[in-house]
Design a protein around this nucleic acid. Structure first.
Lengths: 207, 186
DNA sequence: ATCTTACTTTGCAAAGC
DNA sequence: GCTTTAAAAAGTAAGAT
C-alpha cells in the first residue's frame, strides 16, 4: 500500500518536474525570440495538451516544447521560421518540424500555411519602415495571393519582395541586401520574387 | 507537353527487392566486380551500378538484393538478370529463376494547368493534406485508395509515390481530378 | 548577375547500429 | 531513427565564374 502511494508521489513529482522544465524552456526560447506573453501562454497550452494526450512518448521535452512554440507563433499570427526556432533550441530544425507535424495532427491544430502578410510587421519594424510602407506591402501581398503568385513559394521570400517594392514606391528605399538580412532569405530570392510580382501585378519600379 | 493527365503518366523510378541465393560473400563480390562500392562501416550492402538499363543494386550478405532506378518493369527484369549474370560470372551459385517484388513506384504526371495549393489545402480542411511552403513547395496528399502519396505543385505537375502497381498512379490521378473538380479547384 | 551543384519532400526494401 | 540507392517535382541556397 505504502509503496503504491509513494510511486504515485514520485510519478507526480516527475511529471511536475518535467512540466516545470518544459515551461522554463518555453520561456527561455520565447525571451530569446522576443515573443509576447500571449504567444508563451498559447505555447504552454499546446504543450499541456500534448502531455495530456501522451504525445511526449518517444520524444524529447525540448523537441515538443520547440514545436509547441513554433505552432503557437503561427496560431498567434506572429510566425517564426523553423530555422529561427531551431536557433534558440538545442533541437534540430528537422526534429522540430517532424514533431510539429505530429502534434499538429494529433491535437487537430489545423493551422493553415503561414501567410506572407504575417511577416510584414516584424520585417518592416526591423527595417524601420513606417505603417504606410507596411500597408502598401500588405496590399501587394493581397493581390499576389489572388493572382496565385504565392503557391509553393516561401512566405518569407514573398513578404521580403513585397516590402522591397513597397519601400521603393514609398520613397523609403531599402536595399535588397538589407531586406534579405532581416527576412532571412538571399538577395537572389528577393530578386526572383520581386521581378515576378512587379511583372504580373504591373508595378513599375523606377530605381 | 500536352494531352490528358492520364496520358502524361510516366514511371520515373521503381524500387524492388529480390532474393538471389542464400548467402553471399560481400568482400569477394566488391573486389571482383569493377565499380562496386562496399564500405561496411558506412552501409551493410555492396552497391553495384549497371548502365544499360541504368539501375543500381544493393547486394546483401543474406543473398537479398534491392534494385532501384528502373523506369519500367521490363528494364527492372533485365537489370535483375544482368545482376544475376555478373554474380554467376564470379562462380557464385545464383537461383535459376529470379523473381522480384516491386516495393515502390514513383510516377510523374501533369494536370495540364496551374492549381492553387492554398485553396486546395483549405478545401480539404487539411484532411490528409500537408502543405508547408516554407519547407517544401509541394502539397502532400495522402490517398487511402489506392494507398499512395501524391505531391501536388502549383504548376499542376504531380508526383505519385508509394504505389506497388503501375496502375495505382493512374487511379490516383483520376481521384485527384475528381476531388479537385468537386471542390471547383481544377 | 548567372551557372552549377545540392538540399528540402514523398515512398520503399535491405542489415545493423 | 540512421546509414545507402534512385528519381521527379519547384523553391531556395551556396559557391564559383
Amino acid at each position: 500500500r505504502l509503496r503504491k502511494w509513494q510511486r504515485r508521489i514520485r510519478v507526480s513529482n516527475a511529471t511536475e518536474r518535467n512540466l516545470a522544465f518544459a515551461l522554463s524552456e518555453l520561456d527561455r526560447m520565447a525571451s530569446a525570440l522576443g515573443l509576447p506573453r500571449n504567444v508563451r501562454e498559447t505555447a504552454a497550452v499546446i504543450y499541456r495538451d500534448a502531455v495530456d494526450k501522451n504525445l511526449i512518448r518517444g520524444r524529447s521535452i525540448e523537441g515538443v516544447a520547440a514545436a509547441a512554440l513554433y505552432a503557437a507563433c503561427r496560431q498567434c499570427s506572429v510566425p517564426r521560421t523553423l530555422d529561427e526556432i531551431a536557433e534558440v533550441s538545442r533541437v534540430s530544425r528537422k526534429e522540430i518540424g517532424r514533431t510539429y507535424r505530429f502534434i499538429s495532427r494529433e491535437l487537430g491544430l489545423k493551422l493553415l500555411p503561414t501567410s506572407p502578410i504575417d511577416y510584414v510587421p516584424r520585417f518592416c519594424s526591423g527595417l524601420s519602415l513606417k505603417g504606410e510602407v507596411q500597408s502598401r506591402a500588405v496590399e501587394i501581398l493581397r493581390q499576389a495571393g489572388e493572382r496565385e503568385l504565392t503557391s509553393g513559394r516561401g512566405p518569407t521570400g514573398v513578404a521580403a519582395a513585397a516590402i522591397y517594392i513597397s519601400s521603393i514606391l514609398s520613397g523609403e528605399r531599402r536595399t535588397q541586401r538589407e531586406v534579405a538580412e532581416v527576412a532571412g532569405v538571399t538577395e537572389v530570392t528577393i530578386r526572383n520574387r520581386y521581378k515576378e510580382l512587379a511583372e504580373k501585378l504591373d508595378i513599375e519600379i523606377i530605381l | 507537353m500536352h494531352g490528358t493527365p492520364e496520358e502524361s503518366l510516366k514511371i520515373e523510378n521503381i524500387v524492388a527487392s529480390a532474393k538471389v541465393t542464400d548467402s553471399l560473400d560481400l568482400p569477394t563480390i566488391s573486389s571482383r566486380i569493377p565499380g562496386a562500392d562496399y564500405d561496411k562501416k558506412r552501409f551493410p550492402g555492396v552497391v553495384i551500378r549497371m548502365k544499360d538499363p541504368k539501375i543500381a543494386a544493393l547486394v546483401f550478405g543474406s543473398g537479398k538484393v534491392v534494385l532501384t532506378g528502373a523506369k519500367s518493369v521490363e528494364s527492372l527484369s533485365q537489370g535483375l538478370e544482368i545482376l544475376g549474370g555478373k554474380l554467376r560470372d564470379l562462380d557464385i551459385e545464383i537461383d535459376e529463376h529470379l523473381t522480384y517484388t516491386i516495393q515502390n513506384i514513383v510516377t510523374s504526371a501533369d494536370l495540364g494547368k496551374p492549381i492553387n495549393l492554398n485553396k486546395i489545402a483549405i478545401g480539404f480542411n487539411l484532411d490528409r493534406i500537408e502543405y508547408e511552403p516554407e519547407q517544401f513547395p509541394g502539397l502532400v496528399y495522402r490517398l487511402e485508395e489506392p494507398k499512395v502519396v501524391v505531391l501536388l505543385f502549383g504548376s499542376g505537375k504531380l508526383i505519385i509515390t508509394g504505389g506497388k502497381k503501375p496502375e495505382d498512379a493512374r487511379l490516383a490521378v483520376r481521384k485527384i481530378i475528381t476531388d479537385l473538380s468537386n471542390l471547383g479547384l481544377l
